[in-house]
């Protein structure tokens, strides 16, 4: 197997080609913030938190979708990147109605954690307060669009891992919404297998099981990749 050398934040790393910058950084304990990345499903580069600076390329590229190349010089920790991560986080909070104190995911929410990591003490942008629906028609689960950040992890896990493709996305701009089938109530879905993978894939309190109350949600996003890896082993 060929080995290439790359430099991240001034540190030389030996790695294999064909890996993404994100994979290499995570394997070497270099923190890269992500929201839409979920190990086990395809990366879409949508949250723009994992943007890195690469020498010789005048654009910021998303670490989750960019493959490493020999002698790449990468920076993940510049002031510019930190500033942009903070703005992105603030926009996430301002976009929909994230009320941590009454959320099932309070304390275990990836978005909350992100806010702490980027040092967001307040949101400088006006809140948009959109009208969002809550769909509790499913027998076991609820989807609350107020808390959705459009990472589309549920969409991908449903399509790629479960193969049901119950979830998809409709509309454009800030009107985008995750929809069940052709925008019918989740409980009436003909494709949903009620497998619950989307519940674990969701980074916030947007999808949760009905049996859970405020702050009690335990999500295990890691099981998605575990499943994918075990399937490869054909156990």
């Amino acid at each position: 197997m060929t080995t290439i050398t790359i430099q991240v934040n001034g540190k030389q790393l030996a790695t294999e080609p064909d890996k993404t910058i994100l994979e290499v950084c995570r394997a070497n304990d270099i923190e890269i913030l992500t929201m839409c990345h979920l190990k086990g499903v395809m990366d879409v580069g949508a949250c723009r938190l994992c943007l890195v600076e690469i020498e010789g390329i005048n654009k910021l590229l998303s670490a989750c979708t960019t493959k490493v190349a020999a002698n790449m010089v990468i920076r993940t920790d510049t002031e510019r990147i930190k500033k942009y991560q903070r703005i992105t986080t603030e926009l996430f909070f301002a976009e929909r109605n994230h009320v941590c104190s009454v959320c099932v995911a309070n304390g275990k929410c990836e978005l909350q954690q992100l806010g702490y990591k980027v040092g967001m003490d307040h949101i400088r942008y006006p809140f948009l307060y959109p009208k969002c629906e809550l769909d509790s028609s499913h027998a076991w689960y609820v989807i609350d669009h107020n808390r959705c950040i459009m990472c589309t992890r549920c969409v991908r896990v449903c399509n790629e891992v479960e193969g049901a493709h119950n979830w998809d996305v409709m509309n454009r701009g800030t009107q985008v919404r995750v929809i069940s089938d052709f925008n019918s109530p989740w409980g009436e879905s003909v494709t949903c297998t009620s497998c619950g993978k989307c519940v674990h894939a969701c980074p916030t309190g947007a999808i949760w099981p009905k049996a859970i109350v405020q702050g009690q949600l335990e999500k295990k996003p890691g099981i998605i990749n575990e499943l994918v890896e075990k399937r490869k082993m054909k156990l």
């Binding site: 909070f93 109605n97 009320v99 941590c100 104190s101 009454v102 003490d121 307040h122 949101i123 809140f127 307060y129 959109p130 009208k131 969002c132 107020n146």
Partner: peptide, 18 residues
């Protein structure tokens, strides 16, 4: 000094905004 989520980001108080 804004004290607490309501003062900083409206929190529960702001839930009537929708």
């Amino acid at each position: 000094v804004a004290l607490g989520d309501c003062a900083v980001m409206t929190n529960v108080t702001g839930m009537r905004n929708y």
